[in-house]
Nucleic acid binder design. Structure first.
Length: 335
DNA sequence: AAAAACTACAACCGCCTTCCT
DNA sequence: AAGGAAGGCGGTTGTAGTTTT
């Protein structure tokens, strides 16, 4: 942390007229009062009009990460932890999108939490789970995966639904377990990159190039770890389950819905995206008011997930997915 | 008790996208 | 269409506080 400058004289670099470093209580008061009285406008105007020697960016950050009244304080709950792990397995390091689904939490907070706590925990888990006899794990990754799931379940990271009717008869469930576990076990691999085990990036077209933003839609053939060598798309068929996943911003068809919802929400507090889950998508639209198409995915309630035999571009609906965790029978977020 | 090591997290930086002129 | 300004985001840094040695 940087030292706050109580005098207000220092921390103003000679090359910039703006103050840097920790915010003093006086600055916080100024910004808070201004925001509560005037609301958000152009951030550089906010800084100027509030009488702050800060750049607009700094004010924005301070407001979003610290002063906003709807922020939750305190430690993450176990449920939030589970949610973060789960969302990270789906979204990678897209902290803002993860934060948008955790009311009252900021991307910075989640990012810090991940880097300081979860990442370490998973790393420890991974090393403790790595048995001395590792020869089998490379040839039978599925075993490794299930072992890891068990270990994480024991440590309370999440619980597995052990109902055999759900876990053993469903190749999809098995595949999803493996997918999520893989990303959990190695947080450095954003989603999947299991070239040699039949899994590959769900998003990218390259073997290891994870770029969900630029990558075109691809067909992810959900298979079981330890399957063939053909990767996650193309010719490799594992269990005949094809899931076409669009890049997250391929949602032009959703924007109309988002706009409609925005209209309804015009009178709501634009800064408050702390809301009940069932209205989270409304708020997400507001937060995404700057045409953040990615977040608008969350606004689509007309899309379907796992409903059709083949999902089309634009039907990937993460919010729907998150809303109904029963889509993931192997994960129990309500323990 | 003091020093070293570690942890948590606020804030900055730089890049990218979007908006406006 | 081009260019600049502003906003948004993820990565990284720096340090106060805590724990360990």
């Amino acid at each position: 942390m940087r030292k706050p400058d109580a005098s207000g004289k220092n921390n103003v670099s000679s090359s910039s007229k703006f103050r840097k470093g920790l915010w003093s209580p006086e600055e916080d008061d100024k910004l808070m009062n201004y925001m509560l009285n005037n609301g958000q406008g152009c951030w550089s105007d906010v800084a100027r009009n509030a009488g702050l020697q800060r750049c607009g960016k700094s004010c924005r950050l301070r407001w979003i990460n610290y002063l906003r009244p709807d922020l939750k304080r305190g430690a993450f709950s176990p449920q939030e932890e589970e949610m973060i792990i789960h969302l990270h397995s789906l979204l990678g390091n897209r902290w803002s999108q993860i934060a948008a689904r955790l009311p009252g939490r900021t991307d910075n907070e989640i990012k810090n939490f991940w880097n300081s706590t979860i990442k370490k925990r998973l790393k420890n888990l991974k090393s403790s789970n790595a048995s001395p006899n590792t020869s089998d794990s490379s040839s039978e990754p599925g075993k490794d995966v299930m072992g890891g799931l068990m270990a994480m379940q024991e440590q309370g990271i999440f619980s597995m639904n052990t109902d055999p009717s759900l876990s053993s008869s469903s190749s999809l469930a098995t595949s999803m377990k493996a997918m999520i576990l893989n990303s959990m076990m190695d947080p450095l691999l954003p989603i999947l990159d299991y070239d040699h085990h039949g899994l590959n990036s769900m998003y990218g077209t390259g073997a290891s190039g994870y770029d969900p933003i630029s990558a075109p839609p691809c067909v992810a053939q959900v298979g079981v770890l330890g399957g063939g060598d053909h990767g996650f798309y193309g010719e490799g068929i594992f269990e005949g389950i094809n899931v076409e996943i669009p890049p997250l911003e391929s949602v032009s068809c959703m924007e109309e819905n988002a706009r409609t919802q925005n209209t309804q929400d015009d009178n709501t507090d634009k800064y408050s995206y702390c809301s009940p889950v069932n209205s989270l998508y409304h708020k997400t639209c507001n937060i995404a008011s700057n045409n953040n198409k990615t977040d608008n995915i969350a606004a689509d309630h007309t899309g379907s997930f796992w409903q059709g035999e083949e999902l089309k571009v634009g039907e990937w609906d993460l919010e729907e997915l998150m809303k109904d965790v029963s889509a993931f029978p192997f994960l129990d977020f309500h323990q």
